[in-house]
């Protein structure tokens, strides 16, 4: 027997290879988060023809542009409501939202909590790079306290969202958080999220070397080492203990996996449509 002579990357069939290399900077983790998402799509065994990816605006929002599936690069913050329309109009579709923290949690924050409340049948992969990368590194709703950005030149006076807590409190029925370094756990979580019938949320902490890293004097490799050293894996941790604070240590894991609550589509059909008697 011989070594496989495969010369193309195993994810190439899922990529618009004519658009590679992508726009993400050297050392940026979005590519890794994106690759794990594609691997999870493969691993989950879902019908990829019936799978659509929706993104908003920002660096991570470019994700939809690289996947060779039905893919929609929408307006800033609106990926979730767009995905909601897509899913409700054709409930057979698997709808994956791949976007960034600014897009999903700040300008799209209202849509995020309401989709979670409805237990809308979509999977949201949120790449959190702690700042607005596309516009040059401004403070975000996820920037750690005292971190420097172009709009917090002496340090962020505010505190960041605990995104898993926000998702859980709003009604999300699958919630996990990993970093790109934890690529295997991350892939496993996204796989579970894809197979989960309600609102599933996976936060992916990711380095932004060119903006966040540079202003806070963290080299890309050092950021990954921080991800290794300043994180604690604690599955089923209480969502209130998941503050985004590198000094205290950041808790990773799978926190919520509630399969009892019916999803939005299920509840709508049961409640609003005429039932056969």
């Amino acid at each position: 027997m011989k070594t496989s002579q495969a010369q193309s990357h195993p994810l190439d069939p899922l990529l618009r290879t004519d658009r590679i290399p992508h726009i993400w900077c050297p050392g940026c983790g979005i590519g890794t988060a994106f690759a794990t998402c594609l691997n999870a799509m493969k691993d989950s065994g879902i019908d990829l023809v019936q799978t659509a990816m929706v993104s908003g605006i920002g660096c991570s929002g470019r994700g939809a542009g690289y996947v060779k599936l039905d893919s929609y690069h929408t307006t800033h913050g609106r990926a979730i409501p767009f995905a909601t329309g897509l899913k409700l109009a054709n409930p057979k579709l698997n709808v994956v939202v791949f976007s960034g923290d600014g897009d999903l949690l700040a300008i799209g924050g209202n849509h995020f909590i309401h989709a979670a409340r409805r237990n809308m049948d979509i999977t949201v992969v949120c790449v959190n790079n702690f700042n607005y990368g596309m516009t040059g590194g401004q403070v975000a709703a996820t920037t750690p306290h005292l971190a420097k950005t172009t709009t917090t030149p002496v340090g962020n006076p505010e505190n960041p969202f605990n995104a898993p807590l926000l998702a859980y409190a709003s009604g999300a029925t699958y919630v996990a958080r990993w970093t790109i370094l934890h690529a295997r756990d991350l892939t496993e979580s996204i796989t579970e999220a894809l197979l989960h019938p309600g609102f599933s949320f996976v936060e992916v902490l990711s380095p932004c070397p060119v903006n966040y890293g540079r202003r806070n004097r963290i080299k890309p490799m050092d950021m990954l080492k921080i991800f290794r050293e300043k994180t604690i894996i604690r599955n089923d941790a209480r969502p209130t203990e998941l503050d985004l604070d590198f000094d205290k240590g950041i808790v990773l894991g799978k926190f919520v996996h509630d399969t009892d609550r019916p999803s939005c589509v299920e509840l709508y059909d049961k409640t609003c449509r005429p039932q056969e008697r």
């Binding site: 990357h9 190439d12 690759a35 790109i180 690529a183």
Partner: peptide
């Protein structure tokens, strides 16, 4: 692992 951590495929 190299395959999954690589951001560039």
């Amino acid at each position: 692992y190299c395959e999954v951590i690589c951001p560039e495929f």
